[in-house]
Nucleic acid binder design. Structure first.
Lengths: 220, 220
DNA sequence: TACAAGTCGTACTCGCATGTAGGAGTTTGC
DNA sequence: GCAAACTCCTACATGCGAGTACGACTTGTA
């Protein structure tokens, strides 16, 4: 019974259980075009959600150029799709960011990292927002923290060696970086800021703010 | 025909037509309890939307402690309700902010304004986000720009008198202020930042960033 | 080439949110 | 106290998005 026909060999071995189960294939024996479609769907999801944060599954399928049924063949539910899209988006960013050297002066490294990060921040931001409505907070945290680990490490390191101020917690520096990057991305999206100027604008705010050695001007 | 019974004397003279029509009352002769309920609904809308950005009309009515029908008696459609809630939220902030003196040193005035603003930013933010989905971009801009006019004026003034750096456009300073305030509000909401520390954290970032007189450290 | 794997259109169920309708009951204002 | 204004309940029509089911057609692969 339950002749499952119209479905791609759904990946994701769900949870635990490892390689046991219905066969020795495990989870990776899809046909070439199915794999290609999976990628198209993931890319389409990011694009569609960037255009409209409330994009429906139908919207995403259309954006990806596949039928809605095909999409459901790859991702059982909407949350599962969103999760995969966010993961994909973050991993693509990770690929690029892992190339950036964090050696040398922390301020220089910070500038390099920001210059490469801010584009991805925008891409992931929309998906992240969509994910927040459907995924568990725990899952969100897990993905989010992994994504910003690189930046956090750099800030901690920079604080330790005196390049960045230590009178503020790293968490606040990180949040600040985050929101300023997002702000820049938003301004670019609405045409109020030239993409080429963005890195400079960001640095112009963050570097003075982070390297300020408390000496004078302190009211209260 | 069309015996309109179960409705509050809906305000908003819609468009044109002026005072002609069914009576000389025009648009402001509601009963005391109706007026009270209207206020309850507006307050409930803000609260409900802060809890859940996608709050339904039913949610809002429940939060306000009135029936759904009563709500529809005051606001014909959801967008109309959101618009009114946003307006109300901004006006309440305006009332408080208009008390703040902007005289004297621009940096001090900035600190005063931030200290009083950041709480309201959080309240309005959720409603603003909800409004973005239902109101016209023109309307959004209209309300938004009016709300930040005070801060913009202070920044322009401060730039003119040399208190704030002039190598960045006011629009970017304003955006930065905006996102940092929002970031702080978000951190407070998730319990990662003590509300009492917020003003200090915000100033610690923004003042150095805005008063940095470009002299040294500039790579590229 | 033959068969499994995958795609896609159509159509259906289900739940949920918006907006409408009518009437019974309550409160306010005069 | 009385009429008008207002509230609130139940119910209904409508539309939309998520999933599911089925079947015909196409494409990859051994």
């Amino acid at each position: 019974m339950a002749t499952k026909k119209a479905t791609a060999t759904r990946d994701r071995p769900s949870t635990g259980s490892g390689s046991s189960g219905t066969g020795s294939r495990g989870a990776a024996n899809q046909r070439a075009d199915a794999l290609r479609n999976r990628a198209k769907i993931l890319a389409g999801a990011v694009t569609a959600i960037r255009k409209n944060p409330d994009a429906s599954v139908a919207d995403i399928a259309a954006e990806a150029g596949v039928g809605r049924q095909t999409l459901y063949g790859h991702f059982r539910t909407r949350p599962e799709l969103i999760d995969a899209a966010l993961l994909e988006s973050l991993e693509r960013a990770e690929d690029v960011l892992s190339e950036i050297s964090l050696d040398g002066d922390a301020r220089d490294a910070f500038q390099r990292l920001v210059a490469s990060s801010w584009v991805f921040v925008d891409q992931s931001r929309a998906v992240l927002a969509a994910a927040q409505k459907e995924l568990s907070p725990a899952r969100i945290r897990e993905l989010h923290e992994k994504a910003e680990a690189r930046m956090r490490g750099l800030l901690e390191h920079g604080q330790a060696e005196g390049a960045f101020r230590s009178d503020l917690p790293v968490s606040w520096l990180l949040t600040t970086t985050h929101v300023v990057l997002n702000g820049a991305a938003e301004e670019v999206r609405t045409g109020k800021l030239d993409p080429d100027d963005a890195p400079w604008f960001i640095d112009a705010i963050l570097l003075p703010a982070f390297t300020h050695n408390a000496h004078s001007e302190q009211g209260r």
